[in-house]
Simulated assay, not measured.
Amino acid sequence: IAKPTEAFTDKEKYVLDQFIVNGGKSIWLIDQVAIELDSLFNSKGSSMAFPRDLNLNDFFFKYGFRINPVLINDLYFTQIVLATGEGNNSQYNPVPWFYNPMIFSPNNHPVNNNLEALRFQFANSIDTITNSYRKTVLYSSSPLSRPEGTPKMISLDIINTPPNKEIYNDGSKPVVLLIEGAFNSAFTNRIVPLKLEGTQLKGDDNKMLVVADGDVIKNQIRNNRPLELGYDKWTNNFYGNKEFLVNSVNYLLDDTGLINIRNKKVRIALLDPEKIAEQKTKWQLINVGIPVLLVFFFGFIFNTFRKRKYST
Rank of each mutant, 00 (worst) to 15 (best):
I159E: 09
P51I: 07
N224K: 14
D213E: 00
D232P: 06
P162G: 03
D170L: 13
I290R: 08
I221D: 06
V176W: 01
N236A: 08
T304A: 08
I35R: 13
N57T: 11
R222C: 06
T128G: 00
L37R: 15
S172T: 07
Q32T: 03
R306T: 05
N22G: 12
S141R: 02
N287L: 13
N184Q: 14
A34S: 13
G203E: 07
F244E: 00
N184Y: 11
T235A: 05
L54Y: 08
N206I: 10
N189Q: 12
R119N: 09
N57G: 04
K218T: 10
L138T: 00
Q220K: 03
A182P: 09
N131K: 14
M102R: 11
V295S: 08
N260S: 15
S142T: 03
G198N: 15
I154Y: 12
K218Q: 11
S311M: 04
P193R: 15
F305Q: 14
S140E: 06
K207V: 06
F238C: 00
K242R: 15
T84R: 15
A83R: 04
A83E: 12
Q121A: 10
P193T: 14
P162I: 11
T312G: 08
P143Q: 05
D215N: 03
E6A: 04
N303V: 08
I126T: 10
T9H: 11
L177V: 02
K309V: 11
A186D: 08
V15E: 02
N89I: 04
F59Y: 14
S39F: 00
R134I: 10
K11T: 06
L201F: 13
K264H: 11
N184I: 06
K25A: 11
F297M: 05
K309L: 13
M102E: 13
L37Y: 15
A186Y: 12
T150G: 06
D53F: 06
D272M: 00
G24M: 03
P106V: 01
K44Y: 12
T78Q: 15
E228R: 12
H109E: 05
F298E: 14
V176L: 01
P4D: 04
R225A: 14
M48T: 02
L294V: 12
D205G: 02
F60L: 05
S132L: 00
A83V: 11
I276Q: 09
I72A: 03
D31R: 10
G214E: 04
L138I: 06
W234K: 06
Q200H: 15
Y251I: 02
F300M: 01
I221L: 07
Q200E: 15
R306C: 10
F104G: 09
R134E: 10
R306G: 06
V246F: 02
F298D: 04
S90Q: 12
Q91C: 08
Y63W: 05
N260L: 15
D53H: 10
I217L: 07
L285S: 09
S43R: 15
K233E: 03
K242P: 07
E12I: 09
Q18D: 11
T136M: 02
T256L: 07
F60T: 05
L156A: 03
P101N: 09
V137K: 03
I259R: 01
P151M: 00
N250P: 09
R134Y: 13
G299V: 02
S311Y: 09
N68Q: 06
T130Q: 12
F120E: 01
